[in-house]
Design a protein around this nucleic acid. Structure first.
Lengths: 341, 341
DNA sequence: GTGAAAGCGCTAACAG
DNA sequence: CTGTTAGCGCTTTCAC
């Protein structure tokens, strides 16, 4: 029956109750300083702390030590199914280390800088960014102010910050190779926004993979964003071309689903008239009609590793490998047909 | 060209640069105290702060004032598509008020209490809980320690804490009425876990709605959790009964999709052999096969209102209505057939 | 309208 | 091993 007092009990109260000095209490309750304290006193202090329901005030400790045990995470849109698992991985890692995670939803790229400034004021121990654009000035800013930071999902081409990403080129190669192996020849690409690293890398991945097979990229349309509606529009553009492609490699699942929308509106059938591939393996894409052939990413691990990398930085353990690249994997379902049979 | 110094610039530096006392700087930079300062000094201070790149240390201010400008949010599983929009609403509200939000993913209900304790230590100004179980002892604990809190999505039957929820009974009534209007008579229910308020309320909603129509509830199976797999299992149980229902009202979309899985495995077709309804209108349920008839909730608004309620509490603005109930809405798609034609 | 001084709760030298 | 002392950066009385 610990009488958890609603009123604030401080280290002084504990010291008084235990009949020792506050600094002794501080030491006794600090995991790495408790070795300095005698068994006897340790017991008394712990008992008193327990009894009074003492909870060290993190704000005070933060002021003194400069460490808040908090990190910030900036995501572009938490409603996009890619990010929750990443966040979960980050949170799991943070939680295991006694850290809390501020989640900021950066709907507008222009808000990123002010948000980082507020996080700086909030004294976060570091940030993980899932919002880096190409040549993002934010990255320079972070380095300039000495804020520890790690990129996730989207890396930095110039390697200014550690990053944990998936292999976008390989992902696209997996998709292209699968299509080619199943007899597709006229392959097009629905590319992501060329302002973000993933958009560029995936496009290059498609181009390279096709080149490796000695095949042309018959058409490309760039999506305004990674959204269903943008995918629909881009697909419409693609279909405005004289000759219809046999298959379309999409930069992500949402875009692929947008392609479905446009195709359905025109009475075209997937995969009968055209094969479609996605990227991400979002929840439920195995249940859409037809189930989507896509690329699966280890999202949760992406987040976990990013957080671990950040904590390594925070604890002064400099990493050898600054960029971690995780392997994506092909998931074949029914949106791609076998033209060889 | 603000020379943002990497080294920490404090209020003392600003005071010195501006040739005034620190307390004057503090007042000048505080929105509600700046009235006490002369135009002249205000200008000088602001210029100096700007030039030096001063950012008030929140940890110090928190220690002094007891307010951290942070809130915590506890969600059961951020990977469940219901929560991201709720979180987004919370975050939008918090951000607009200069607050940051800690997101904690409470995978195991037993971890809720320790997490709340850590948040208490972290001096959060309040919490919003999306994880309340029925008669949750956590609620009493929060009241006991005087932590401001608001429930979202799941309310408390005893009204111990303010809550923002959707009308679960109405939701189920909308589903039942639609089925009845389209000629279904033998209606069953895939119920949510009866340990959480929503599971109970939705089940009661189905029962009441059916009673209102003078129809029996032909069968009920309780799901272990709000998951696709649990839905599949519960559907299997339902199909083990001698007579097959014409329609099944599911406690949520994931469960409904699990029902799809089981039905498909048995070669039964939706809605030809059996009609299915969901709840939540998750992203992509309009694209599954067949598109799911479901209940749409104002998730984002749920989160927004919950946060606003919390801030009202924090600012001492006691609310009149302690529980806010938002209206769900029926979305008819193709998982329910019209038996009257 | 501004300055002086105290102190929020904690940790970390420094003594002993 | 434990106590003493100082101070993190800020806000808020209290004077003037």
């Amino acid at each position: 029956m610990s009488a958890t007092t609603p009123s604030t009990v401080t280290i002084r109260d504990v010291a008084q109750a235990a009949g020792v000095h506050v600094s002794t209490v501080s030491r006794a309750l600090s995991p790495d300083k408790r070795g300095l304290i005698s068994e006897e006193v340790l017991r008394v202090v712990e008992e008193a702390a327990q009894r009074l329901g003492y909870r060290p005030n993190r704000a005070a400790s933060a002021l003194r030590t400069g460490r808040t045990h908090t990190i910030g995470v900036l995501v572009p849109d938490i409603t996009n199914a890619v990010f929750p698992p990443i966040l979960q991985g980050i949170e799991a890692s943070a939680s295991a280390r006694g850290y809390f995670v501020f989640v900021a939803n950066v709907m507008d790229q222009a808000l990123a800088r002010p948000i980082v400034e507020r996080m700086l004021a909030q004294q976060v121990d570091g940030v993980v960014l899932a919002i880096a654009t190409r040549d993002d000035p934010l990255i320079d800013y972070l380095r300039q102010v000495g804020m520890r930071a790690v990129l996730v999902n989207r890396g930095d081409e110039r390697g200014r910050l550690p990053a944990v990403v998936s292999d976008d080129r390989l992902a696209m190669k997996l998709a292209v190779d699968h299509l080619v192996a199943t007899g597709h020849r006229r392959i097009a690409h629905l590319a992501g926004p060329q302002g973000v690293p993933t958009g560029v890398a995936r496009r290059q991945g498609v181009e390279q993979a096709l080149r490796d097979c000695g095949l042309p990229l018959v058409a490309v349309a760039e999506c305004e964003s990674y959204s269903r509606e943008a995918g629909r529009q881009a697909m419409a553009q693609l279909l405005a071309q004289p000759e219809r492609p046999e298959a379309v490699v999409c930069c992500n699942d949402l875009v692929a689903l947008g392609a479905y929308d446009e195709l359905r509106a025109r009475g075209l059938r997937v995969p009968h008239d055209i094969s479609i591939t996605g990227h991400n393996d979002m929840p439920l894409v195995d249940m859409v009609d037809p189930p989507l052939t896509t690329i699966r990413l280890p999202h949760r691990e992406l987040g976990w590793r990013a957080a671990e990398t950040l904590f390594d930085e925070i604890d002064g353990r400099a990493l050898s490998a600054s960029t971690v690249v995780l392997r994506p994997e092909l998931v074949v379902r029914q949106s791609t047909r076998d033209c060889t049979v």
